[in-house]
Design a protein around this nucleic acid. Structure first.
Length: 584
DNA sequence: GCCGTTTTCGGCCCGACTGTTTTCAGTCG
């Protein structure tokens, strides 16, 4: 049996934490397990080696007891402590945690007193009145549980960033228009540009809270009001996502924005820095800590998030970086990267037209790119094997190339279309066109569109072989994942990154909101190895060139600078970049 | 269960809101 992976250990720790919670264990003991799971999530070293060499305890948050349990689980493939714990509870009980408003105490009561062992049993108990009769429960609680059950069945609680962005930005814009509103921002994982978000957090600064809260809960996009208080309201929007509003004073605004932007781990690190200075940092203010043993320095005046970071001895940290993945140390040492911005992009590659499966013509795509202010546009329709996408055979492809060359002559050097293709990587890693055809193109995006179920070794070898072709300029949507609908195929990402560095192959950052592939967590490694990216919308319609915005957010999460992104290069320089590989 | 300029015991973030209560427990973020 293969030793358990880091991911399996993280899952184990989270499961134990939940079980201990149900048991009513000490909350700090419960938290120790989730803390350890989080610590491992951000652990970048060789996990297997750390386990066998007994160095896991060096990870902050993993002590002697957990090191022993993890080592046993990894080497023996099972942990009796966990198995025993699990047998104490019916398996269906865990899905109850996914219901809004139910925590360990209530779930325990429902199980022990009403024999509720899953969501269906809970629904029945709510409907026949047994839940309402329980001590600590009532009619309202029973009703709310039914609503939560309904909501879970309908929405499952996760939303792609790109699917909620329009609704979120519109609501924010409308809040900003209110006369009472002094400042307003989205916070939370949305502001950090996570690829999948679970709710929307709005922070508003005002002297007059009531009209703002009233506007929010009464908005036409609100389906249900979940809570409404003086400073905090929650609603479910018609799109299904939950939205929370926090109303604060202008003085509290910087702290509130920082606090609710998170991530939680980032905040904890900031708070400990404050404590070390004899201050306390919460969602309202940075102030003197009454319990401090040291005599605190005077607290500087705070008017912005930047002031807060400065007070803690840190450079300003962009929201996308606030994941406790090294940004605090970098901010302390003035080593934060200057992140790429949308304005830096001068063009883009990987776009489709009506020639394959796009819905806009070549001319329409070019006009749209020009309107966006781009200087160049790469066209890469599907290759012949992508039959379902009307992939181009050699004849149609070369005809498109000729059309593009002809159009370019009319731009007078002000704009340029690059003739490319999105070439299928076949099952064995060979390409869909012979080299002498690829050589006639300005660039090639090579992507996997079939045979997703190969083993990790086969898939990795397949990608490596494709990258070894001198005409493959960049690797398209490397993992093949479709967020919230299709898992990534098995591939050894570090091996692909190494090969990309060696062969000078660009790895695309596919900005389509359903993909956002390669995942942002891998970009720091790619950057370290010297791998460049191209932020590509994978546009199938003129409107989808806007996906670039989404892609820049992910690039920023991946710590990428303009110099890491080839499509920040202007016309005149980008040509040389595209031919780096084939001329070396 | 973890951790240590509060250092081997005794803390561990904490405030807002709801619903069920008559002063607070549970949940959430």
């Amino acid at each position: 049996m293969a030793p358990k992976s880091k991911e399996e250990v993280i899952e184990l720790l989270e499961s134990i934490s939940r079980l201990l919670e149900l048991k009513g264990e000490n909350v700090f003991k419960v938290r120790a397990y989730t803390n350890a799971a989080r610590a491992l999530e951000t652990f970048t070293g060789d996990f297997a080696a750390a386990v066998t060499e007994g160095r896991l305890g060096e990870v902050a948050g993993v002590g002697a007891a957990l090191q022993e349990k993890i080592t046993e689980f990894v080497s023996a493939g099972a942990l009796p402590y966990y198995e025993k714990l699990r047998e104490e509870f019916p398996p269906g009980l865990f899905e109850l945690f996914e219901l809004q408003g139910l925590g360990p105490k209530k779930i325990k009561a429902l199980w022990e007193q009403l024999d509720v062992i899953n969501i269906d049993a809970l629904e029945a108990a709510c409907k026949d009145g047994r839940v309402a009769e329980l001590k600590g429960f009532g009619e309202k609680t029973a009703g709310n549980i039914l609503v939560s059950i309904q909501a879970r069945r309908q929405y499952a609680g996760a939303f792609r960033f790109g699917d909620v962005a329009a609704e979120a930005e519109t609501l924010l814009h409308e809040l900003k228009q209110l006369p009472e509103v002094l400042h307003a921002s989205l916070a939370g994982s949305y502001r950090r540009r996570k690829e999948v978000v679970h709710d929307l957090d709005f922070i508003v600064a005002t002297r007059d809270a009531e009209p703002v809260s009233g506007f929010f809960v009464g908005h036409s996009n609100v389906e249900t009001v979940l809570a409404k208080g003086a400073t905090k309201s929650s609603v479910r929007l018609v799109g299904g996502i939950q939205a929370d509003l926090r109303v604060v004073t202008p003085e509290e605004y910087p702290s509130a924005l920082l606090y609710f932007t998170g991530s939680k781990e980032h905040n904890i690190a900031l708070r400990s820095r404050a404590l070390a200075r004899g201050w306390t940092l919460n969602e309202y203010r940075l102030g003197p800590d009454d319990k401090a043993k040291i005599k605190p320095d005077p607290v500087p005046s705070i008017r912005s998030e930047k002031d807060l970071y400065a007070a803690l001895g840190l450079d300003y940290i962009e929201p996308e970086l606030r994941e406790d993945r090294g940004e605090i140390t970098a901010a302390e040492g003035h080593r934060l990267p200057h992140l790429v911005e949308l304005e830096n992009l001068r063009g883009t590659f990987h776009n489709h037209t009506t020639e394959s499966d796009g819905r806009s013509s070549l001319k329409e795509m070019v006009s749209a790119a020009q309107e966006l202010g781009l200087d160049y546009l790469g066209i890469s329709d599907h290759s012949v094997s992508s039959f379902q996408a009307h992939g181009l055979d050699v004849g149609r492809l070369l005809k498109q190339v000729a059309t593009i060359r002809e159009m370019n002559e009319r731009f007078d050097g002000e704009f340029k279309i690059f003739a490319g293709v999105e070439c299928d990587i076949l099952k064995d890693g060979t390409l869909d066109y012979p080299d002498d055809v690829l050589a006639q193109l300005d660039y090639v995006v090579a992507s996997v569109h079939a045979s997703f179920t190969q083993s990790q070794a086969e898939m990795t070898a397949r990608l490596l072989r494709a990258m070894s072709n001198p005409y493959v300029t960049m690797l398209g949507h490397m993992s093949g994942r479709l967020l919230l609908s299709r898992e990534a195929y098995a591939v050894d990402v570090p091996a692909v990154i190494d090969a990309a560095a060696q062969t000078k192959t660009v790895i695309e950052l596919n900005a389509n909101p359903r993909r956002l592939d390669m995942d942002w967590r891998w970009w720091p490694l790619a950057k370290e190895k010297g791998v460049l990216t191209s932020i590509n919308p994978d546009a199938h319609h003129v409107s989808q060139l806007q996906y670039l915005w989404n892609g820049v957010g992910i690039a920023r999460k991946g710590w990428l600078r303009p110099s890491d992104v080839i499509n920040t290069l202007p016309l005149g320089k980008i040509e040389a970049q595209l031919s780096v590989k084939r001329s070396s």
